[in-house]
Simulated scan of single mutants.
Amino acid sequence: MQMGPWQLLLIAVVVLVLFGRGKVSSLMGEVGKGITAFKKGVKDGTEEIEREAASTAKDVTPEEKDKA
């Protein structure tokens, strides 16, 4: 069962009435900060993995033997 726009609007109104505008606003601000911190952590982790892979990369091309 999917939620339509009217159901979502009703839930939003109920949350606003129960918690008040100030509390909902501060909660959304904290959610935004959390999302930003998560994205930064993922980016930093990816960069660290790439740096580690680059520093441990070795040349694996086979050496050619002299044909003398």
Rank of each mutant, 00 (worst) to 15 (best):
Q7K: 08
I49G: 09
T46G: 05
G34F: 08
E64D: 03
F38G: 02
M1R: 14
M1T: 15
E63D: 05
V17S: 09
L10G: 13
V17C: 13
P5M: 14
V15T: 09
A68C: 01
G4S: 07
V42K: 14
E50K: 01
T61H: 05
K43G: 05
Q2S: 13
T46V: 08
R21H: 13
E63H: 06
K65Q: 07
E30T: 14
M28A: 15
L9G: 11
V24I: 11
G41Q: 12
K39G: 00
E64V: 13
T36I: 01
A12K: 13
I49V: 12
A54P: 06
K43V: 12
L18Y: 10
G4L: 07
G22W: 10
S25K: 15
L27T: 15
M3A: 03
L18N: 15
M1E: 13
A57V: 04
T61I: 04
K43W: 11
E30C: 06
K65M: 08
G34W: 14
K67N: 15
K23C: 06
G32E: 08
G34M: 09
E48Y: 07
L9C: 10
G20D: 11
A12G: 14
G22E: 09
L18G: 13
T36D: 05
F19I: 11
K43C: 04
L8D: 00
G22K: 08
K40H: 04
L16A: 15
T56F: 02
L8C: 04
A57R: 04
E50M: 02
I35P: 00
L9P: 05
V24L: 11
R21T: 10
P5H: 14
V17P: 01
I11P: 00
S26H: 06
E64P: 06
T56C: 09
E50C: 01
G22V: 07
A12E: 12
K33T: 15
E30L: 11
K40C: 02
S25M: 10
G20Y: 13
D59N: 05
P5V: 15
V15D: 01
V13P: 02
G20C: 05
L8Y: 05
R51V: 06
E47T: 06
F38T: 04
G4C: 08
E63Q: 03
E47P: 01
K23G: 00
V31E: 09
G29F: 02
V17N: 10
I49A: 14
R21A: 15
V24R: 02
V60Q: 02
L8Q: 03
G4M: 02
V17Y: 15
M3S: 03
M28P: 01
S55V: 11
L27P: 04
V31S: 04
G45Q: 03
E47M: 06
K67D: 12
F38A: 08
V13G: 08
V14M: 12
I49N: 07
P62I: 10
I11S: 02
Q2E: 12
K40E: 03
D59C: 01
K40R: 10
K39M: 00
G4H: 03
K40P: 00
K58S: 13
T56H: 07
K39Y: 01
G41L: 06
T46A: 05
A37M: 08
L8F: 00
M3V: 06
V15G: 03
V31R: 12
V17H: 14
K33Q: 13
E30V: 12
E48R: 12
